[in-house]
C-alpha cells in the first residue's frame, strides 16, 4: 500500500518537475526544479532496495553536480529570461515524429521477440505464467552462479555493492577514477584561464604601480 502511494507520488512529482526543467524560460527555475527532481529520484532508488545508489545519487547529483551548476551561474546572466526563437513548426513535427517512431521501435522490439519466444513455448505446451516465472528464475540462477544477487539474507546492499565493485568491476572502477581525474584537470584548465587577475579587485591600481615603477 505504502509502496503504491509512494510510487505514484514520486512519479507524478518527478515528471512535473522535469517538465518545468524542460519548459521553463528562467535558468534558475530550471536548475532548482532539476535538483528537486533528482532528490525524488533517489526516493525511487530507496524504494527499489538500491540504498547505496540512492545515497550516491544524493551526494553526487544533488550535492556535487547541482553545486557545480550553481557555481557556473556566477559566469552567466542567470536572472534574464532566455529568448529562444524556434525554427519552423514543420521541422519540429518531422523531428518529433521520427524520434517517436524510433523510440516505439526500440521499446517494441524486445517485446515482440519475447512474444515470439512465448508463442514457441506455448506451442511446446507451457503456460504463460510458467514461462515468465522460468524466465525470471533463469536470470536469478545466473545472478546466483556469478555471485551478483541484488539482495541476500543478512547482507546489506552497500556491503554487496562494495564486494562486487572491488572484485568483478575493479578495472572499470579504476578507469572511471582516471576519467574523473582527467575531467577535473580539464575543468580547472578550461574554467580557470585568467583566474589570476581578480574580477573584484580593481586591476587599474596594479597597473598604476607598474607604470610608476617603469617611469622610475
Amino acid at each position: 500500500m505504502y509502496e503504491i502511494v509512494a510510487f505514484y507520488l514520486f512519479s507524478a512529482l518527478t515528471i512535473g518537475l522535469f517538465l518545468v526543467t524542460v519548459m521553463s524560460k528562467n535558468i534558475l527555475y530550471a536548475m532548482t526544479s532539476l535538483a528537486a527532481a533528482m532528490v525524488l529520484i533517489s526516493g525511487f532508488f530507496f524504494m527499489l532496495g538500491a540504498d547505496f545508489l540512492g545515497v550516491v545519487q544524493l551526494i553526487v547529483y544533488v550535492g556535487a553536480i547541482m553545486a557545480l551548476y550553481s557555481f557556473a551561474m556566477m559566469f552567466f546572466d542567470a536572472t534574464r529570461d532566455i529568448k529562444e526563437k524556434n525554427t519552423s513548426n514543420a521541422l519540429v513535427f518531422l523531428l518529433g515524429g521520427l524520434s517517436a517512431l524510433v523510440l516505439v521501435l526500440m521499446f517494441a522490439a524486445p517485446i515482440m521477440s519475447d512474444n515470439l519466444n512465448t508463442a514457441n513455448m506455448l506451442i511446446n505446451g507451457m503456460s504463460y505464467s510458467e514461462f515468465i516465472d522460468g524466465n525470471i528464475s533463469k536470470y536469478a540462477q545466473y545472478a546466483l552462479d556469478n555471485g551478483i544477487q541484488a539482495s541476500v539474507e543478512g547482507i546489506g546492499n552497500a556491503q554487496s555493492v562494495g564486494v562486487i565493485l572491488f572484485t568483478k568491476y575493479l578495472v572499470p572502477f579504476e578507469v572511471a577514477a582516471v576519467m574523473l581525474l582527467v575531467a577535473m584537470i580539464a575543468g580547472i584548465i578550461l574554467a580557470g584561464k585568467k583566474m589570476d587577475n581578480s574580477l573584484t579587485k580593481d586591476a587599474s591600481i596594479d597597473d598604476e604601480i607598474l607604470v610608476v615603477k617603469d617611469e622610475k
Binding site: 525511487f44 527499489l48 545472478a143 544477487q149 541484488a150 539482495s151
Partner: peptide, 10 residues
C-alpha cells in the same frame, strides 16, 4: 535500478 531489483541482479 528497477531491472536490477526485479531480476535480483546487481
Amino acid at each position: 535500478a528497477a531491472i536490477s531489483h526485479y531480476y535480483n541482479d546487481l
